[in-house]
Write a protein that binds this DNA or RNA. Structure first.
Lengths: 219, 219
DNA sequence: CACGACCGTCACGAAATCGTTATGCGTCGG
DNA sequence: CCGACGCATAACGATTTCGTGACGGTCGTG
């Protein structure tokens, strides 16, 4: 659980303990990241607003190396934010105030979903296999070497496969919200990424389509 | 394996043997309990319906004194029952009919998940054998002497074999969270460790791959 | 046809990261 | 008391990776 409001923390702890879960807590983004890395929990509950950043960033960060179920809490019922959270890899989005039953139901649903599609840590599309847990990409069986940023970029795209992602969304997910307007930056990295996952010689883009003026789409 | 339907028993035995597992069988709840106590297996596969009781009971019974991975088989895809089984301590729930691949995937997933708390497992990869209980490492039969920290480091990597571990995760697991940012520390110990488990002279790293900017991967 | 908007590509300097070696400190056993 | 050992830290060269700016191509519009 990652939240900085004492009330919420207390309430959550009681609810979860009572339901038989073991709970460990962090108050900031950094702490949450550290905690999750040190003793990986079965699931994560994250508040959107944290002292040192956005819970959605933390969500994306966790998703880059873990498949644990993630539930995001938010004070406002904003459709936009909800979509952002889910795109960043969250499994559910709950708005405060919420009832204990609501939260527990969400958790159980998320658990069921994960057990069912367990180890869906790998996405395969047209001969391109992306393994999130191992941080590897294979094209027709051969490994493709990607830089950290290229992998984050590809992950963000692949997690939303089929959907169009705006340049703004991609930039803030990979580089952080400070870079949200740096379109040229995104262009060069998309170019580099394409050359690695498409063949060295490719006439048409097979995996990453560009939607002029809007963004990019994976598939 | 604990099941009373001859067809299933035969099929399972073939599937598991073929995958390299050693199999012992029991037909009833009582037999299963007895077998598990007499020669504790690495994992248990239990049918929900047994002649003398419920497989879920057996599951709970085993859980009271063992941490072995447990997979529950059921003829009906009942959400309610699935939750019951998982609550009783099962690690996965598979509905019949199931494919061989499905079962094996489940088993592997469950093994990976449980290995963390399993102290008596021994991992062998490409001539490198790591015995967690005995704290020993053998390369091609010859013992390799490791310092305590080197062994902890190798263990952390080997327990998550195939997966990429963040430098941050490795540091907090081996040295504690206070060192989570001390990348240079990790580097030198990785270097020392490599020189001991790879030959004294090795052109490419066989066991520990490095993913620049992210972390390390064992395999 | 001229123009602007947008995209893909290339090249280059700055910064980050990695592997390695060396040094100093503390501990333990002989 | 002294040497051996494990460990943390520092330093350095080599390589990789990143961000930026410039350039050319394409498309749609007036």
């Amino acid at each position: 659980m990652c939240d900085d409001e004492p009330q919420i923390v207390r309430a959550l702890r009681v609810i979860l303990r009572e339901a038989g879960y073991e709970v460990s807590m962090a108050a900031t983004l950094a702490e949450g990241l550290d905690l999750a890395a040190r003793e990986p929990p079965d699931a994560a509950i994250i508040d959107v607003v944290l002292p040192d950043g956005s819970g959605i960033e933390l969500c994306a960060e966790l998703r880059s190396w873990s498949t644990m179920p993630i539930v995001v809490l938010s004070a406002l019922d904003d459709e936009e934010q909800k979509v952002l959270a889910l795109r960043a890899g969250a499994d559910d989005y709950i708005t405060k105030p919420f009832s204990a039953r609501e939260l527990l139901a969400s958790l159980e649903a998320v658990f069921r979903r994960v057990v069912a599609s367990d180890e869906e840590a790998t996405v395969t599309v047209k001969g391109l296999e992306i393994n999130f847990a191992a941080h590897t990409v294979l094209r027709d069986g051969r490994e493709v070497k990607l830089t950290p940023i290229e992998f984050k970029l590809l992950s963000a795209l692949a997690r939303n496969r089929g959907r169009l992602m705006t340049s703004r969304a991609l930039l803030s997910e990979v580089w952080g919200s400070a870079y949200a307007n740096d379109a040229p930056l995104l262009r060069t990295h998309i170019a580099n990424l394409r050359h690695k996952i498409e063949g060295p010689d490719a006439k048409a883009w097979l995996y990453i389509q560009t939607e002029a003026g809007v963004g990019y789409r994976f598939l």
